[in-house]
Structures are given as structure tokens and as C-alpha cells.
């Protein structure tokens, strides 16, 4: 016979297993915090990024000019040829025309801090 206590006892390793599964998630870079993600989200909206990029969780960010930014924290490359590391991403956001001259993404005159905040926001896109 299975009483309530037995059921609870048999389920007790479950939280531990779930926690282990979460830790063991593969391919998830854990970047140091590069900036303030909340500010970065505001900057991303105000710079009009969503008119060219699909951005998950951002209303009206449905553009199909550039690549969708879904799973950005797990993307391998930035701009098609730079490894997706915080310094590379910040540089790309700040000066896309210097990184890949003649591409369609404009230099938007962002400060280093703004670019870092946007990078921090993009790294919240799992």
C-alpha cells in the first residue's frame, strides 16, 4: 500500500535532480555582467532595433531586415565572423560600420556604456 508519506519520500530527490539538470544545461556561456540589462532593453527599444530584428519578448520588434535575436546568449558568432564574446558584441553594437564596413546596420552613436547595457540585455535572450 502506498501512503502519502511514501509518495512524498519517493519525490524528495526531485528538486535536487531538477536543480542538477538546470546546472548541467549545455552550451550556455556565463558571461560576466557587462552592463545593466534593464537599461539595455530601454536603449534597444529607443534605438529602433526592432524595426530590423525580431526580438523575443519585445512588442513590435518584428523586423526581417537583419537576423532575429532569439537565443542571442547562445549565438556562436556576431556579425557572421566574430566570436560572440562580450568585448566583440559591445564593439559590434557600438560601431557596426567599423566592424563590417558597408553592412546594413548603422553606427548609432552609442556610448560605451550604452553598448554594454544593450549587450547585457541581449545576453538575457536565452
Amino acid at each position: 500500500m502506498l501512503d502519502g508519506t511514501a509518495v512524498i519520500r519517493s519525490l524528495s530527490p526531485l528538486p535536487l535532480l531538477l536543480a542538477l539538470a538546470a546546472c548541467a544545461q549545455p552550451d550556455r556561456p556565463h558571461w560576466p555582467v557587462v552592463g545593466d540589462a534593464a537599461s539595455g532593453r530601454v536603449w534597444t527599444e529607443r534605438m529602433g532595433c526592432g524595426s530590423c530584428h525580431i526580438i523575443p519578448g519585445m512588442e513590435n520588434a518584428t523586423g526581417l531586415v537583419g537576423p532575429p535575436l532569439i537565443h542571442f546568449s547562445r549565438r556562436t558568432m556576431v556579425a557572421g565572423y566574430l566570436p560572440n564574446t562580450p568585448p566583440n558584441l559591445v564593439r559590434w553594437i557600438k560601431e557596426p560600420q567599423a566592424v563590417a564596413p558597408g553592412n546594413a546596420m548603422p553606427n548609432a552613436g552609442l556610448s560605451e556604456g550604452q553598448a554594454r547595457d544593450i549587450a547585457a540585455y541581449l545576453y538575457t535572450l536565452d
Binding site: 527599444e45 529607443r46 524595426s51 530590423c52 526581417l64
Partner: peptide, 12 residues
């Protein structure tokens, strides 16, 4: 960028 709603790029 100081406008809200932000005027969209209109490439597409």
C-alpha cells in the same frame, strides 16, 4: 531616438 514611439527604420 528621443521620440516615443520610436520611428521605425523602413527598409522592409
Amino acid at each position: 531616438r528621443q521620440l516615443e514611439p520610436s520611428p521605425p527604420f523602413v527598409i522592409d
